[in-house]
Design a protein around this nucleic acid. Structure first.
Lengths: 146, 146
DNA sequence: CTTTCTGCAAAAATTTTGCACGGAC
DNA sequence: GTCCGTGCAAAATTTTTGCAGAAAG
C-alpha cells in the first residue's frame, strides 16, 4: 500500500469518527491532499476539481480545508506574498526544501534539528512547542539546466 | 547611537541614493520599521500613523512597504492565516523565536544553523540561497505566569 | 517648475457567510 | 426523514490601482 493510500484512509477514518459525511467532493479534496506532494493551495485544489465536479465552488474547498485543519489532518504553510499552501501528507511541522525555479518541494531528514531545538531552549529559556523550517534554493535538475 | 538610529539612517540613505523623496509619511514608516522589534504588519503601522497623520491612507503604507522591500531594506515574513509582518531591523533571513502567548519575538544566535545548511546541501543536492526558521513556544515570563 | 508621492475612491483579489436545495446516512 | 454539506451569490476582507492635487527637490 502506498503512503498516499494510507493517508487517504486515515483522513477518511478521521472524518467518519468525527461524524462528518463522506460526500464525493469532500473525498476528492481528501484524495488530492493525500496524494499531492507539492503542497497545493486552495486555488490549485479548486482548479483540479473543476473537471470532475464542474459545479463545485471554491467555498466548498475552503470549508473542507478548514475542517481537515481543525481535525489536525492538514497542515497550513503560509508563504510571504501568496495564499497558503496545505500539506495533507505530513500534517505536522517538518522541514521543507523548496526549489525557487521549478517549485518542487522535498521533505528532508535533518539530524541536526533536535540539537537545534535544544540550543534554542538553552539560549532563550522558551518552551518550544512547534517550529517552521524551510530552505529555498535551486534543485540539482534546475541547476544543471540553467 | 542606538541600532535603531543606525537602521533609520541607513534606510533614509538608501532612499536618497535611489532618488526617492523623503516625505514625512515615508520617514515615519521608516522610523517605525527601524525601531520596532515586534515585526509590525501593514495594519499595525497604519494604526500607529493615524495619530500623527490623521489623513494618511493604507495605500501609502502598502506602497512604501513595497518600495522598501524592493530596496532590500525590509524583510517580509508571512504567517499562516494572517497578514504578513515586516522586519526593518534585520532585512535578511534570520531565525525567530515567537511566544505564542504574548507575541514577543526574539532573534536568537544559532551556532548550529551553518551545519544544518551544510547537511541540507549534502543530502538534497540543492544550492541553498535562503531559508526561513521560526520556533514557536512559550517565553519564560509567560511560562511563570500561566 | 518638474516629477514623485499622497489621499481618496474604485477596483481586484481573496476569503467568509447566509440561505435554500440536494444528498449522505 | 433528518440534518449536514453544497452551490450560489452576496458580503466582508485584504491589497492594488487610477487619478487629481499636494509637496519635495
Amino acid at each position: 500500500m502506498h503512503s498516499s493510500d494510507e493517508r487517504y484512509n486515515t483522513m477518511v477514518a478521521r472524518l467518519k469518527e468525527s461524524n462528518h459525511r463522506l460526500t464525493p467532493q469532500r473525498l476528492a479534496i481528501v484524495k488530492i491532499l493525500a496524494e499531492s506532494d507539492c503542497h497545493p493551495s486552495v486555488e490549485s485544489i479548486y482548479a483540479q476539481l473543476r473537471k470532475p465536479f464542474p459545479s463545485i465552488s471554491q467555498a466548498t474547498v475552503y470549508r473542507n480545508i478548514i475542517l481537515l485543519k481543525s481535525l489536525g489532518e492538514v497542515y497550513e504553510i503560509g508563504f510571504a506574498g501568496e495564499s497558503s499552501h496545505y500539506d495533507g501528507r505530513k500534517p505536522y511541522p517538518h522541514p521543507h526544501v523548496v526549489c525557487l525555479q521549478c517549485g518542487k518541494i522535498i521533505d528532508p531528514d535533518l539530524e541536526s534539528l533536535h540539537d537545534m531545538t535544544k540550543e534554542i531552549t538553552d539560549e532563550s529559556g522558551f518552551e518550544i512547542v512547534s517550529y517552521r523550517l524551510d530552505f529555498f534554493g535551486v534543485c540539482p535538475e534546475c541547476h544543471r539546466k540553467g
